[in-house]
Amino acid sequence: MSGKTIIEMLNYDKNDKRHRFARRAIIAAASLVVFVLLWWNLSLLLANPAIPTPQKTWSALTYLFAHGDSVSGVTMWSHISISLRRFVYGLLLAMAVAVPLGLFLGYSETLREFTMPTLEILRPIAPIAWAPIFIFTTGYVWGPILVVFVGIFFPMLTNTMFGVKKIDPNWIDAAKTMGATRVQVFTKVMFPAAVPYVMNGLRVGMGIGWMCIVASELYASFGGGIGFFVSIMAQMGYWDYVFAGIAVIAVLGLLTITVSDYVHKFIVRRMGME
């Protein structure tokens, strides 16, 4: 190492991609270290069993993934897969309903004027408020799925509608002058043009949907799941398990949002509609 001193190597060059990445990584690591230390201090200071230390949470986490808990008799993987399955069902259901409906509502002003009052009444209701009703009326199996559905449905619908309204009218005119029928305008112009907005709806909806699934499982769940796991563990005072569950929820939520962000960006770029 003749030419370069350590200082030189440390010199931050913001035009270098690797430097930028390293900087971000170091800052993120420092932030996490401070967070864990704060948590540790708070846990010791409050000395409340409901706030276990990071060490306890970590060992609970590793134990749950390796051996599972005695109450449900299954590992954390099973709880995660149960919740994820519900989440995916709710998501697919929301997409299947919200996207076509959003396209129609964006397309037809009369239909929009007709449905908006009802939708505007329903929209502000927190999805979890439906949980008791859905869970009872749909026999505990579809209940949590429907809660996720409601959570994802509205952002998806409004984004799709917005997407249709934002469509360049010249695109539609262009398609018409090439002989496109109403149906063809719908399928070949409006639908693809709305896709980036649908994806944005998906991105927003997925964050909300994840909160909904956990909340509805906390309320009651016929078939377990990570939210249910947290609720029964709290009932029995396994607070380290509760925290482990919360950590899993946090990581899964982060993953879903990261994945949907990435998918959104990818599709928007792929479609050249940045």
């Binding site: 449900s72 008799g73 299954v74 099973s78 016929f222 377990g224 799941g225």
Partner: peptide, 19 residues
């Protein structure tokens, strides 16, 4: 066996759910 409903099981079991 005594298993939480929704969890897959292979041994003959009774399932439970919280209500």
């Amino acid at each position: 066996g005594f298993v939480q409903n929704g969890v897959p099981y292979t041994e003959p079991s009774v399932r439970w759910t919280q209500v």
